[in-house]
Design a protein around this nucleic acid. Structure first.
Lengths: 293, 293
DNA sequence: TCATTTTGATTCCTTTTAGTTATCAATGAT
DNA sequence: ATCATTGATAACTAAAAGGAATCAAAATGA
């Protein structure tokens, strides 16, 4: 039995008139008569009293109408929800980003996007690059702004947008604190405050030092960048991190690295996976907006 | 889109396996694949992530599953309700009867029926013959036990079952109170307490006197039989009513009429109207049980 | 690593059913 | 009594659901 036929039933029930209901539904009157007869046969009980040329619900029909209302309401609702998602310019975009972008880049981006697409809704997720990648694989988010990571499960496409510079941070009181810039070589042997393994930044930092052939003297591994800054501030070592928000409030000096170290940030999405039109539009807008920031 | 296909979706969603779901649903795997693809096309969004040979819900699918659960639950529920109604021996019978039968006849009848058909459910209505007839016409009740009345709207069939005898009731102190039986002629000129017009018993009583060519001296018209008894008890007149429950508690004498007056009681139902199997069974049982009571 | 099995999708065909037009019988209205 | 209107039916067409065979990709196992 077609779901549409439930709507037919509802229309006949409320109009109490086959011919006019058929006109409203834009089908022929015989088709409607047969549809109703089919439903009655399916259910095994008549739904209408037919007296002469008048037709109206019997007590089974009244019961069924209650159920049909529940069913159609739910069906319409979910269909409309999907139509909203598919409608370009509106609809929900599920978007994730790494913590360092949460204070400036993303708020500005979203604000600008909402001016351009006032009806676009955002479902935002903040996480590490690695877990963002997992959310992409699951289809829980449409797009994410993070450090590029390859997935073993599905194909991920990435458009690189800008680079976050990494700085060597040392305690204010450190002998190196007066320098304008510094080589990685210069902190060889210094106690190093690292990010926990598994974080993609940790991997990147490790690669920078590996390239220079420097064996790090890692003393602590922290979960968060602010924890790292705290440890450095307390004189427990030095580190290599992006310019996080509020870094100046710590007792640390931020030194440019020579040659500079960058962490490349890009927008990623699952290849061969459905992207709602709103997400596609947002992606395009985001690329223009953040390109070479 | 077929309602059945929603069940297909639910099965695939929970089994996360096309082939096995198809087996469970007793359809071919290609048919199932196509059904799912159709639903996705209808809704405009994909519902599953397909990675290699594995298939599982994406976030749209999760949303849709919620709705499908609501829809299928409601549909199953109402279908089962109708199946119960159609299942012989069980199911609900909507049954009406006039007030005078509510104290003995119907309780005994229902008790006996429930012994014979333990799963039969009753929805009982007590009303006047006239309004019972209206409920029959509307299809609000399946059967009723009442005085036979013709309907102008639809064809009503009636099987006559037994006769309620009507008695002349007079105040205890009335000169006629000592008689064993009485002719209608004998109360000619007495103040008469009638039932309100519209009540079918009133119509019957009127006919009895009309046949004898007696013009009644009606002083009051009451809604209920007990009110009539009350008026008679108060010495305000005489009347002609059935032997209602508790009549002996009034200060009245019940006199047999000569020749006797009867009110014929029968079971009525709407002709050409669907009678649930349970109602049909009940009707048959009722006829046997009450025949010539 | 390569052959084998398994899985979901596709193609092509059949069957079912929804829908159309023409028509009918019954019902109301004039 | 006549005539328009209504819901139902019949015969036919169109659409879509379902089945068998087959395919390509992906897991499995030697």
């Amino acid at each position: 039995m077609e779901i549409e036929q439930l709507r037919y039933f509802k229309t006949v029930a409320t109009m109490q008139h086959m011919t006019r209901a058929a006109e409203v539904l834009s089908i022929s009157q015989p088709a409607l008569s047969k549809s109703i007869a089919n439903i009655e046969q399916h259910l095994g009980v008549p739904l209408f009293n037919r007296e002469g040329r008048s037709i109206y619900l019997n007590r089974f029909g009244e019961t069924f109408l209650q159920s049909v209302n529940v069913i159609l309401d739910e069906y319409e609702r979910v269909k409309e929800e999907f139509e909203d998602i598919v409608r370009p310019g509106s609809g929900e975009v599920s978007f994730g980003f790494i913590h360092t972008l949460g204070t400036e880049v993303v708020p500005e981006l979203i604000a600008a996007t909402r001016k351009r697409f006032p009806n676009m809704l955002f479902s935002l997720t903040q996480a590490t690059s690695l877990s963002l990648m997992k959310r992409l694989e699951e289809g829980a988010i449409d797009l994410c702004l993070s450090q590029k990571i390859a997935s073993k499960v599905i194909e991920i496409e990435t458009e690189e947008l800008f680079a976050e510079e990494l700085f060597v941070v040392v305690p204010n009181t450190h002998p190196l604190a007066h320098l304008e810039s510094i080589t990685l070589e210069a902190i060889k042997g210094e106690p190093f405050i690292a990010i926990k393994k598994g974080n993609s930044l940790r991997q990147l930092v490790d690669e920078f030092f590996l390239k220079e052939g420097i064996k790090l003297n890692t003393t602590f591994a922290a979960e968060e960048m602010h924890t790292v800054a705290g440890f450095v501030s307390a004189g427990m070592g030095v580190s290599l991190i992006p310019n996080i928000k509020g870094l100046d409030n710590y007792n640390v000096k931020r030194l440019k690295v020579d040659p500079p170290c960058y962490r490349s940030i890009g927008v990623s999405w699952a290849k061969n996976r459905y992207l709602p039109p709103a997400a596609t539009e947002f992606k395009q807008y985001l690329i223009e907006y953040l390109q070479d920031r």
